[in-house]
Simulated assay, not measured.
Amino acid sequence: MSQAPLEAAVADYLAHLRDERRLADLTRRHYRRDLDGLMASLTARGLTDWRQVTATMVRDWIAREHRRGLAPRSLQRTLAAVRGLYRYLQREGRADFDPAADLRAPKQRRRLPETLDVDQAAQLLDAPTNPGADDPLAIRDQALFELVYGAGLRLAEVASLEATDLAGDPRELRITGKGARTRIVPVGRQARRAVAQWLVVRPQLARASESALFVSRRGQRLSHRAIQARLDQRGRARGLDQHVHPHMLRHAFATHLLESSGDLRAVQELLGHADISTTQIYTHLDFQHLAEVYDRAHPRARRR
């Protein structure tokens, strides 16, 4: 049974995202769900072709989703999915205009990311002289967390590393991040040392055919969930009174660099942000830190 025209166009677009744009599976699943919702709304109106869609139809659908409780951030992603679809359809000659081009999602209040201060990062990462010398999992975890904090890696980026990526004490690491964008990040001394210790004991766990840098006790590539769980366990064991997750270490990396250097452009490059406005949230974190110092130290700010 052949697909309906609306569905067929979306299937072709998602294949384009997979094969040409190399978008992550999770992103494609989100776009699929968003476009399924719009297709259901259009089908209920009796539409059968993307050329029939108007800006009013898309606006009504976005407003209905907002009333249903969809967050502004999700609505922004939804509109991005629709615009991406229409860019593809216009390129293929299957649509004449983009009805979502001038639509805007409700504004979202920007939340500051959770992070760790320098002392908390040290409390989490500082290890004994020979950390877990008889425990390859402890050595693995130390290398894993030092690398995330030392290079500002995303969870997916560190999980996808290959053992060959860090062979031979590399000072730099090539990372392919979101949108298949590639960046070069430095690997600091402590991270290099921790990874070198892990590579010595990695054969005790890794299967002969496994290429991943970080592996589980079963010898397979370490999953995202396992990395999250091990980091949270480490945070609780080290006495931190908050849930610690991998992105928190990435935020700490960015915040501590910006506090020390003030170089927002360099931090953008190291994080792999396509738009510097994404990086600018760390200037708010930096100001928050300065405001706290002011409140503690300035004679006109201190409470009597």
Rank of each mutant, 00 (worst) to 15 (best):
R218K: 14
W61K: 04
S209Y: 11
G150P: 03
A55V: 10
L14G: 00
D286V: 15
S41I: 00
H256P: 00
M1G: 15
R265L: 02
Q204M: 14
E210M: 09
H247R: 04
L257E: 07
V201I: 10
A167W: 05
A301M: 10
E146M: 01
V187Q: 05
R230E: 10
V201A: 07
P299K: 13
Q52T: 09
A191V: 09
Q197C: 05
L199T: 03
D286M: 13
Y149N: 03
L222I: 07
L42F: 06
R109W: 12
R225Y: 11
G168E: 01
E114S: 14
M248G: 04
A191I: 05
R189L: 13
L6D: 05
A254M: 03
F214P: 03
R87G: 14
L285G: 04
D96E: 15
R217M: 12
T129K: 14
A81P: 01
A127G: 10
Y294K: 02
M1T: 15
A127S: 13
E172K: 11
A196Q: 14
L85D: 10
L153W: 02
R296T: 15
A127E: 13
D96F: 05
R230D: 13
L26S: 15
H66F: 14
G132L: 13
P99Q: 12
R77N: 04
